[in-house]
Design a protein around this nucleic acid. Sequence first.
DNA 1: CATAATTGTTAGCCAAGGCTAAACTATTTG
DNA 2: CAAATAGTTTAGCCTTGGCTAACAATTATG
Lengths: 161, 161
Amino acid sequence: MSNRDQSLPHTVSGTSNSGDALPPIGEHVRQYETVRNAHETELIEDYVELIGDLIQHRGEARAADIASRMGVSQATVSKMIRRLNELGLVTSKPYRSLFLTEEGQKMAEVSRARHDIVLHFLRALGVNDHTARIDAEGMEHHVSNETLSIMQRFIDQQTQR
Amino acid sequence: MSNRDQSLPHTVSGTSNSGDALPPIGEHVRQYETVRNAHETELIEDYVELIGDLIQHRGEARAADIASRMGVSQATVSKMIRRLNELGLVTSKPYRSLFLTEEGQKMAEVSRARHDIVLHFLRALGVNDHTARIDAEGMEHHVSNETLSIMQRFIDQQTQR
DNA sequence: CATAATTGTTAGCCAAGGCTAAACTATTTG
DNA sequence: CAAATAGTTTAGCCTTGGCTAACAATTATG
Protein backbone atom coordinates (compact mmCIF):
# COMPACT_ATOMS: atom_id res chain seq x y z
CA MET A 1 0.00 0.00 0.00
CA SER A 2 2.01 2.99 -1.07
CA ASN A 3 2.82 4.58 -4.30
CA ARG A 4 5.56 7.04 -4.83
CA ASP A 5 3.24 9.86 -5.90
CA GLN A 6 -0.48 10.26 -5.95
CA SER A 7 -1.03 13.07 -8.42
CA LEU A 8 -1.81 11.87 -11.90
CA PRO A 9 -0.35 13.57 -14.91
CA HIS A 10 -3.48 15.53 -15.78
CA THR A 11 -5.58 13.28 -17.93
CA VAL A 12 -5.36 11.33 -21.10
CA SER A 13 -6.06 14.09 -23.53
CA GLY A 14 -7.94 13.06 -26.59
CA THR A 15 -7.00 9.48 -26.08
CA SER A 16 -9.61 8.30 -23.63
CA ASN A 17 -9.96 4.58 -23.68
CA SER A 18 -12.54 4.54 -20.95
CA GLY A 19 -15.25 4.07 -23.51
CA ASP A 20 -13.54 1.11 -25.13
CA ALA A 21 -15.24 -2.21 -24.78
CA LEU A 22 -13.73 -4.80 -22.51
CA PRO A 23 -11.42 -7.21 -24.30
CA PRO A 24 -12.99 -10.55 -25.24
CA ILE A 25 -12.78 -12.92 -22.30
CA GLY A 26 -10.19 -15.32 -23.66
CA GLU A 27 -7.80 -12.51 -24.41
CA HIS A 28 -8.40 -10.81 -21.12
CA VAL A 29 -7.62 -14.01 -19.26
CA ARG A 30 -4.41 -14.39 -21.20
CA GLN A 31 -3.33 -10.88 -20.26
CA TYR A 32 -3.69 -11.61 -16.58
CA GLU A 33 -2.07 -15.00 -16.95
CA THR A 34 0.93 -13.44 -18.60
CA VAL A 35 1.30 -11.06 -15.69
CA ARG A 36 0.96 -13.88 -13.16
CA ASN A 37 3.60 -15.88 -14.96
CA ALA A 38 5.98 -12.95 -15.19
CA HIS A 39 5.48 -12.57 -11.49
CA GLU A 40 6.83 -16.01 -10.84
CA THR A 41 10.01 -15.43 -12.78
CA GLU A 42 10.67 -11.85 -11.82
CA LEU A 43 12.36 -12.41 -8.53
CA ILE A 44 14.36 -15.34 -9.81
CA GLU A 45 15.60 -13.26 -12.69
CA ASP A 46 16.46 -10.38 -10.42
CA TYR A 47 18.58 -12.61 -8.23
CA VAL A 48 20.32 -14.23 -11.16
CA GLU A 49 20.93 -10.88 -12.80
CA LEU A 50 22.34 -9.43 -9.62
CA ILE A 51 24.56 -12.44 -9.04
CA GLY A 52 25.89 -12.07 -12.56
CA ASP A 53 26.56 -8.40 -11.99
CA LEU A 54 28.34 -9.05 -8.73
CA ILE A 55 30.54 -11.68 -10.28
CA GLN A 56 31.37 -9.39 -13.13
CA HIS A 57 32.06 -6.28 -11.09
CA ARG A 58 33.33 -7.73 -7.86
CA GLY A 59 34.80 -11.00 -8.99
CA GLU A 60 32.45 -12.97 -6.78
CA ALA A 61 28.93 -13.07 -5.42
CA ARG A 62 28.43 -13.61 -1.73
CA ALA A 63 25.14 -13.96 0.07
CA ALA A 64 25.82 -10.96 2.28
CA ASP A 65 26.27 -8.65 -0.71
CA ILE A 66 23.10 -9.89 -2.28
CA ALA A 67 21.25 -9.32 0.96
CA SER A 68 22.49 -5.79 1.38
CA ARG A 69 21.90 -4.87 -2.28
CA MET A 70 18.43 -6.31 -2.27
CA GLY A 71 17.60 -4.82 1.10
CA VAL A 72 16.53 -8.17 2.42
CA SER A 73 17.72 -10.42 5.28
CA GLN A 74 20.49 -12.92 4.84
CA ALA A 75 18.14 -15.70 5.76
CA THR A 76 15.91 -14.77 2.88
CA VAL A 77 18.84 -14.84 0.50
CA SER A 78 19.97 -18.19 1.80
CA LYS A 79 16.57 -19.68 1.20
CA MET A 80 16.42 -18.18 -2.25
CA ILE A 81 19.81 -19.57 -3.14
CA ARG A 82 18.55 -23.01 -2.28
CA ARG A 83 15.75 -22.46 -4.75
CA LEU A 84 18.09 -21.22 -7.46
CA ASN A 85 20.15 -24.32 -6.85
CA GLU A 86 17.17 -26.59 -7.26
CA LEU A 87 16.32 -24.77 -10.45
CA GLY A 88 19.80 -25.45 -11.75
CA LEU A 89 20.70 -21.78 -12.06
CA VAL A 90 23.53 -21.55 -9.55
CA THR A 91 26.00 -23.88 -7.92
CA SER A 92 27.12 -23.27 -4.38
CA LYS A 93 29.09 -25.01 -1.71
CA PRO A 94 28.07 -24.14 1.83
CA TYR A 95 29.83 -21.05 3.18
CA ARG A 96 31.46 -20.38 -0.17
CA SER A 97 30.63 -17.88 -2.86
CA LEU A 98 28.24 -18.55 -5.70
CA PHE A 99 28.59 -19.41 -9.33
CA LEU A 100 26.10 -19.35 -12.15
CA THR A 101 25.52 -22.49 -14.17
CA GLU A 102 25.46 -22.30 -17.96
CA GLU A 103 21.76 -21.80 -17.78
CA GLY A 104 22.11 -19.22 -15.06
CA GLN A 105 24.60 -17.29 -17.12
CA LYS A 106 22.31 -17.32 -20.07
CA MET A 107 19.46 -16.03 -17.95
CA ALA A 108 21.67 -13.34 -16.49
CA GLU A 109 22.70 -12.18 -19.94
CA VAL A 110 19.17 -12.10 -21.23
CA SER A 111 17.98 -10.18 -18.20
CA ARG A 112 20.89 -7.79 -18.33
CA ALA A 113 20.30 -7.09 -22.02
CA ARG A 114 16.60 -6.50 -21.48
CA HIS A 115 17.29 -4.30 -18.53
CA ASP A 116 19.77 -2.23 -20.51
CA ILE A 117 17.43 -1.75 -23.42
CA VAL A 118 14.62 -0.59 -21.20
CA LEU A 119 16.90 1.72 -19.26
CA HIS A 120 18.46 3.26 -22.33
CA PHE A 121 15.09 3.59 -23.92
CA LEU A 122 13.70 5.52 -20.99
CA ARG A 123 16.68 7.82 -20.99
CA ALA A 124 16.37 8.33 -24.74
CA LEU A 125 12.73 9.22 -24.18
CA GLY A 126 13.82 11.95 -21.81
CA VAL A 127 13.24 10.39 -18.41
CA ASN A 128 15.82 11.45 -15.88
CA ASP A 129 18.40 8.92 -14.92
CA HIS A 130 17.26 8.24 -11.40
CA THR A 131 13.66 7.65 -12.33
CA ALA A 132 14.68 5.66 -15.37
CA ARG A 133 16.62 3.25 -13.20
CA ILE A 134 13.71 2.66 -10.87
CA ASP A 135 11.17 2.28 -13.65
CA ALA A 136 13.44 -0.01 -15.64
CA GLU A 137 13.84 -2.35 -12.72
CA GLY A 138 10.10 -2.80 -12.49
CA MET A 139 9.27 -2.75 -16.17
CA GLU A 140 11.89 -5.09 -17.56
CA HIS A 141 10.01 -8.26 -16.78
CA HIS A 142 6.88 -7.13 -18.53
CA VAL A 143 8.22 -6.00 -21.85
CA SER A 144 7.77 -8.39 -24.75
CA ASN A 145 10.48 -8.98 -27.29
CA GLU A 146 8.45 -7.19 -29.88
CA THR A 147 8.41 -4.07 -27.76
CA LEU A 148 12.08 -4.50 -26.92
CA SER A 149 12.96 -4.47 -30.59
CA ILE A 150 11.00 -1.32 -31.11
CA MET A 151 12.66 0.28 -28.11
CA GLN A 152 16.04 -0.66 -29.53
CA ARG A 153 15.16 0.93 -32.85
CA PHE A 154 14.08 4.07 -31.03
CA ILE A 155 17.36 4.23 -29.13
CA ASP A 156 19.32 3.88 -32.33
CA GLN A 157 17.39 6.66 -33.98
CA GLN A 158 17.85 9.03 -31.08
CA THR A 159 21.54 8.41 -30.62
CA GLN A 160 22.67 7.95 -34.23
CA ARG A 161 21.86 11.49 -35.23
CA MET B 1 8.86 -20.40 -15.05
CA SER B 2 8.10 -19.52 -18.63
CA ASN B 3 8.56 -16.61 -20.84
CA ARG B 4 6.65 -16.00 -23.99
CA ASP B 5 9.74 -16.04 -26.23
CA GLN B 6 13.33 -16.89 -25.64
CA SER B 7 15.09 -15.19 -28.51
CA LEU B 8 16.51 -11.82 -27.64
CA PRO B 9 16.28 -8.92 -30.01
CA HIS B 10 19.86 -9.11 -31.20
CA THR B 11 21.90 -7.06 -28.76
CA VAL B 12 22.11 -3.60 -27.37
CA SER B 13 24.02 -1.98 -30.14
CA GLY B 14 26.39 0.71 -29.06
CA THR B 15 24.59 1.12 -25.80
CA SER B 16 26.10 -1.57 -23.69
CA ASN B 17 25.65 -0.93 -20.03
CA SER B 18 27.28 -4.14 -18.98
CA GLY B 19 30.44 -2.29 -18.13
CA ASP B 20 28.64 0.26 -15.97
CA ALA B 21 29.41 0.18 -12.30
CA LEU B 22 26.81 -1.17 -9.94
CA PRO B 23 24.57 1.53 -8.50
CA PRO B 24 25.53 2.71 -5.02
CA ILE B 25 24.02 0.41 -2.42
CA GLY B 26 21.40 2.75 -0.99
CA GLU B 27 20.00 3.48 -4.39
CA HIS B 28 20.07 -0.13 -5.43
CA VAL B 29 18.12 -1.10 -2.34
CA ARG B 30 15.53 1.54 -3.10
CA GLN B 31 15.08 0.20 -6.61
CA TYR B 32 14.26 -3.24 -5.33
CA GLU B 33 12.10 -1.88 -2.57
CA THR B 34 10.06 0.06 -5.07
CA VAL B 35 9.46 -3.09 -7.04
CA ARG B 36 8.49 -5.05 -3.93
CA ASN B 37 6.04 -2.34 -2.94
CA ALA B 38 4.54 -2.16 -6.39
CA HIS B 39 4.09 -5.88 -6.13
CA GLU B 40 1.88 -5.54 -3.11
CA THR B 41 -0.47 -3.08 -4.75
CA GLU B 42 -0.54 -4.55 -8.22
CA LEU B 43 -3.11 -7.21 -7.71
CA ILE B 44 -5.31 -4.97 -5.61
CA GLU B 45 -5.24 -2.34 -8.31
CA ASP B 46 -5.99 -4.88 -10.99
CA TYR B 47 -9.05 -6.08 -9.14
CA VAL B 48 -10.29 -2.58 -8.45
CA GLU B 49 -9.65 -1.51 -12.01
CA LEU B 50 -11.50 -4.52 -13.36
CA ILE B 51 -14.42 -3.99 -11.01
CA GLY B 52 -14.63 -0.39 -12.17
CA ASP B 53 -14.59 -1.50 -15.80
CA LEU B 54 -17.25 -4.09 -15.23
CA ILE B 55 -19.52 -1.60 -13.52
CA GLN B 56 -19.01 0.87 -16.31
CA HIS B 57 -19.48 -1.54 -19.17
CA ARG B 58 -21.86 -4.06 -17.73
CA GLY B 59 -23.69 -2.01 -15.16
CA GLU B 60 -22.53 -4.28 -12.37
CA ALA B 61 -19.62 -6.34 -11.16
CA ARG B 62 -20.25 -9.88 -10.01
CA ALA B 63 -17.73 -12.25 -8.55
CA ALA B 64 -18.28 -14.79 -11.30
CA ASP B 65 -17.36 -12.29 -14.01
CA ILE B 66 -14.25 -11.27 -12.19
CA ALA B 67 -13.25 -14.88 -11.80
CA SER B 68 -13.74 -15.68 -15.45
CA ARG B 69 -12.01 -12.50 -16.66
CA MET B 70 -9.08 -13.03 -14.36
CA GLY B 71 -8.87 -16.73 -15.10
CA VAL B 72 -9.01 -17.56 -11.43
CA SER B 73 -11.34 -19.59 -9.22
CA GLN B 74 -14.41 -18.09 -7.62
CA ALA B 75 -13.04 -18.95 -4.23
CA THR B 76 -9.99 -16.84 -4.91
CA VAL B 77 -12.14 -13.92 -5.94
CA SER B 78 -14.32 -14.29 -2.88
CA LYS B 79 -11.32 -14.17 -0.63
CA MET B 80 -9.92 -11.20 -2.47
CA ILE B 81 -13.17 -9.32 -2.17
CA ARG B 82 -13.04 -9.77 1.56
CA ARG B 83 -9.62 -8.14 1.50
CA LEU B 84 -10.79 -5.27 -0.68
CA ASN B 85 -13.57 -4.78 1.79
CA GLU B 86 -11.20 -4.62 4.71
CA LEU B 87 -9.13 -2.12 2.79
CA GLY B 88 -12.21 0.03 2.34
CA LEU B 89 -12.13 -0.18 -1.44
CA VAL B 90 -15.38 -1.98 -2.14
CA THR B 91 -18.66 -2.55 -0.36
CA SER B 92 -20.47 -5.82 -0.79
CA LYS B 93 -23.42 -7.66 0.62
CA PRO B 94 -23.25 -11.42 0.39
CA TYR B 95 -24.63 -12.79 -2.87
CA ARG B 96 -25.07 -9.31 -4.25
CA SER B 97 -22.99 -7.42 -6.74
CA LEU B 98 -20.13 -5.14 -5.76
CA PHE B 99 -19.69 -1.43 -5.48
CA LEU B 100 -16.59 0.66 -5.23
CA THR B 101 -16.23 3.06 -2.33
CA GLU B 102 -15.12 6.64 -2.99
CA GLU B 103 -11.59 5.55 -2.45
CA GLY B 104 -12.06 2.52 -4.66
CA GLN B 105 -13.41 4.68 -7.44
CA LYS B 106 -10.48 6.99 -7.17
CA MET B 107 -8.08 4.08 -7.38
CA ALA B 108 -9.94 2.65 -10.36
CA GLU B 109 -9.73 5.96 -12.17
CA VAL B 110 -6.07 6.40 -11.49
CA SER B 111 -5.32 2.86 -12.61
CA ARG B 112 -7.46 3.18 -15.68
CA ALA B 113 -5.79 6.44 -16.67
CA ARG B 114 -2.33 4.99 -16.19
CA HIS B 115 -3.25 1.90 -18.08
CA ASP B 116 -4.61 3.95 -20.97
CA ILE B 117 -1.54 6.12 -21.20
CA VAL B 118 0.77 3.14 -21.29
CA LEU B 119 -1.37 1.34 -23.83
CA HIS B 120 -1.68 4.34 -26.11
CA PHE B 121 1.98 5.05 -25.75
CA LEU B 122 2.93 1.57 -26.84
CA ARG B 123 0.64 1.78 -29.82
CA ALA B 124 2.04 5.21 -30.72
CA LEU B 125 5.50 3.69 -30.53
CA GLY B 126 4.45 1.15 -33.12
CA VAL B 127 3.77 -1.92 -31.02
CA ASN B 128 0.92 -3.99 -32.39
CA ASP B 129 -2.33 -3.85 -30.54
CA HIS B 130 -2.34 -7.34 -29.14
CA THR B 131 1.17 -7.14 -27.74
CA ALA B 132 0.56 -3.62 -26.50
CA ARG B 133 -2.37 -4.81 -24.42
CA ILE B 134 -0.37 -7.56 -22.80
CA ASP B 135 2.66 -5.39 -22.11
CA ALA B 136 0.54 -2.55 -20.79
CA GLU B 137 -1.14 -4.82 -18.29
CA GLY B 138 2.21 -5.78 -16.83
CA MET B 139 3.96 -2.45 -17.14
CA GLU B 140 1.36 -0.10 -15.78
CA HIS B 141 2.22 -0.66 -12.16
CA HIS B 142 5.87 0.11 -12.65
CA VAL B 143 5.74 3.37 -14.51
CA SER B 144 6.40 6.51 -12.47
CA ASN B 145 4.39 9.64 -12.96
CA GLU B 146 7.37 11.33 -14.49
CA THR B 147 7.54 8.68 -17.16
CA LEU B 148 3.79 8.78 -17.61
CA SER B 149 3.92 12.49 -18.36
CA ILE B 150 6.58 11.94 -20.92
CA MET B 151 4.60 9.14 -22.49
CA GLN B 152 1.61 11.40 -22.67
CA ARG B 153 3.64 14.09 -24.39
CA PHE B 154 4.88 11.52 -26.87
CA ILE B 155 1.35 10.40 -27.64
CA ASP B 156 0.26 13.97 -28.23
CA GLN B 157 3.14 14.59 -30.61
CA GLN B 158 2.46 11.46 -32.59
CA THR B 159 -1.26 11.97 -32.92
CA GLN B 160 -1.47 15.77 -33.24
CA ARG B 161 0.32 15.87 -36.54
C1' DC C 1 -43.66 -23.71 -7.22
C1' DA C 2 -40.19 -27.23 -6.77
C1' DT C 3 -36.18 -28.51 -8.47
C1' DA C 4 -32.09 -27.64 -11.26
C1' DA C 5 -28.50 -24.63 -12.39
C1' DT C 6 -25.76 -20.93 -11.29
C1' DT C 7 -23.42 -18.12 -8.19
C1' DG C 8 -21.11 -17.19 -3.79
C1' DT C 9 -18.90 -18.59 0.58
C1' DT C 10 -16.21 -21.29 3.76
C1' DA C 11 -12.75 -24.52 5.23
C1' DG C 12 -8.53 -26.30 4.64
C1' DC C 13 -4.60 -27.16 1.79
C1' DC C 14 -0.09 -25.50 -0.64
C1' DA C 15 4.08 -22.69 -2.20
C1' DA C 16 6.53 -18.39 -2.21
C1' DG C 17 8.93 -14.88 -0.09
C1' DG C 18 9.41 -12.18 3.78
C1' DC C 19 11.02 -12.10 8.92
C1' DT C 20 13.81 -13.17 13.67
C1' DA C 21 16.50 -15.98 16.56
C1' DA C 22 19.78 -19.47 17.20
C1' DA C 23 23.45 -22.41 15.64
C1' DC C 24 27.28 -23.21 12.95
C1' DT C 25 31.54 -22.09 9.89
C1' DA C 26 35.19 -19.19 8.32
C1' DT C 27 38.24 -15.42 8.73
C1' DT C 28 40.68 -11.92 11.11
C1' DT C 29 43.36 -10.31 14.59
C1' DG C 30 45.51 -9.62 19.38
C1' DC D 1 46.64 -20.03 17.85
C1' DA D 2 42.55 -18.67 20.50
C1' DA D 3 39.04 -15.65 20.68
C1' DA D 4 36.26 -12.28 18.47
C1' DT D 5 33.91 -10.95 14.40
C1' DA D 6 31.77 -11.72 10.15
C1' DG D 7 29.23 -14.61 7.17
C1' DT D 8 25.97 -18.54 6.37
C1' DT D 9 22.48 -21.71 7.37
C1' DT D 10 18.49 -23.70 9.72
C1' DA D 11 14.20 -23.65 12.20
C1' DG D 12 10.02 -21.82 12.73
C1' DC D 13 6.75 -18.17 12.13
C1' DC D 14 3.62 -15.01 9.13
C1' DT D 15 0.97 -13.22 5.02
C1' DT D 16 -0.52 -13.56 0.19
C1' DG D 17 -2.67 -15.54 -3.40
C1' DG D 18 -3.54 -19.62 -5.58
C1' DC D 19 -6.32 -24.24 -5.40
C1' DT D 20 -10.39 -27.96 -4.48
C1' DA D 21 -14.29 -29.65 -2.20
C1' DA D 22 -18.38 -29.03 0.32
C1' DC D 23 -22.06 -26.24 1.45
C1' DA D 24 -25.45 -22.16 1.06
C1' DA D 25 -28.18 -18.80 -1.37
C1' DT D 26 -30.26 -17.03 -5.44
C1' DT D 27 -32.23 -17.33 -9.86
C1' DA D 28 -34.22 -19.84 -13.75
C1' DT D 29 -37.04 -23.28 -15.67
C1' DG D 30 -40.20 -27.58 -16.52
